[in-house]
Simulated scan of single mutants.
Amino acid sequence: MPTTPSRLTCVIIDDNEMNRLTLEHFVELTDSLTLMASFSGSIEALAFLKSNPSVDVLLLDIEMPHLSGLDLVKILPQPQPEVILVTSHRDFAVEAFALRVADYLVKPVEYARFVQAMSLAADRRAASKAPPSEPSAEAQVPAQGSVLFVKVNNKLVRLNFDEVLYIEAMSTYSVIVTLTQKHIVYASLKALEQRLPFAHFRRVHRSYVVNTHRISFIEDNMLVLGPYEVPVGKSYQEEFFRSLPNL
């Protein structure tokens, strides 16, 4: 089937045959994706990527012999595809997000989570291909009340919190998630929650604080924010739903 402009081309690299076949099946199920190639090793895949710079998305296992997924990301030819890392362990999350990958999937991967990751990769890919435009003065300088400086990798990064979807706890650090980026902050979720000056950021789970202005809809105690779903914990449900403005 010929590739249409709306389709994303993708490559899979995983040395585990069962995991690789699962990802291939997920790609086959997804109308917006076209599988260009699937590899059991990163070295042969690197040669393919060098000769095919148009690949949009790379589904990449982390733990592989000879050349790990993390090491492969560091030497990918430019322009790089959007990378979605796939692993059996959460321990690589800090290093993975520091490499500015699109997303990080933990095995066994569920199809719904796969679709979320692909949606984020598609948004990032579209943004990278969009022609530069002259931002308005308002866009250049967000309202000061929505901007905070956050320490990320020993740098103070200026974030417009109107664009933040949610903040997730990851062990002793937190991940601030927008539609196009994930920022690792070396502070606990509790510490961030206590310092956030915005009333519309609410704790809805022991692992999540959400921007209620970014909730698209709620279904079965799941909050949908862009391509992501965040659960509302049982102990938070009564207070959270009572706080929502509704008819």
Results as ranks from 00 to 15, higher is better:
221 N>A: 12
172 T>Q: 12
6 S>Q: 13
235 S>H: 12
42 S>N: 03
54 S>N: 15
52 N>W: 07
114 F>Q: 01
198 F>E: 04
227 P>M: 06
25 H>S: 08
243 S>K: 02
142 P>S: 07
207 S>H: 07
22 T>P: 00
205 H>A: 00
129 K>Q: 15
129 K>R: 15
77 P>D: 10
67 L>E: 02
57 V>S: 04
63 E>W: 03
189 L>W: 07
192 L>S: 02
95 E>M: 09
77 P>H: 12
12 I>F: 00
197 P>F: 04
69 G>D: 00
106 V>P: 01
200 H>M: 05
213 H>Y: 10
21 L>M: 12
175 V>S: 05
176 I>P: 02
209 V>K: 03
31 D>F: 06
59 L>H: 02
147 V>P: 03
11 V>P: 00
64 M>S: 03
222 M>A: 13
89 H>G: 03
141 V>S: 13
241 F>L: 03
213 H>N: 14
212 T>C: 12
19 N>P: 03
244 L>S: 01
89 H>C: 06
8 L>R: 01
37 A>C: 08
28 E>F: 10
193 E>N: 13
205 H>Y: 05
182 K>G: 03
223 L>Y: 09
53 P>E: 08
109 V>H: 00
213 H>G: 09
127 A>F: 11
225 L>G: 01
52 N>Q: 11
96 A>E: 02
56 D>I: 11
223 L>Q: 09
131 P>C: 06
104 Y>Q: 01
199 A>D: 15
50 K>I: 14
188 S>R: 09
33 L>N: 00
174 S>P: 06
31 D>T: 08
60 L>S: 02
43 I>A: 13
122 A>H: 03
92 F>Y: 15
225 L>R: 02
29 L>D: 06
162 D>E: 14
118 M>C: 14
152 V>G: 09
146 S>Q: 12
68 S>C: 12
241 F>E: 02
199 A>T: 15
174 S>I: 08
239 E>D: 12
20 R>I: 04
51 S>N: 13
20 R>Q: 12
90 R>E: 14
57 V>C: 07
134 E>K: 13
234 K>V: 15
240 F>N: 00
170 M>L: 13
113 R>Q: 15
77 P>C: 14
84 I>G: 00
65 P>S: 12
106 V>N: 03
63 E>V: 10
112 A>P: 07
226 G>T: 08
203 R>D: 02
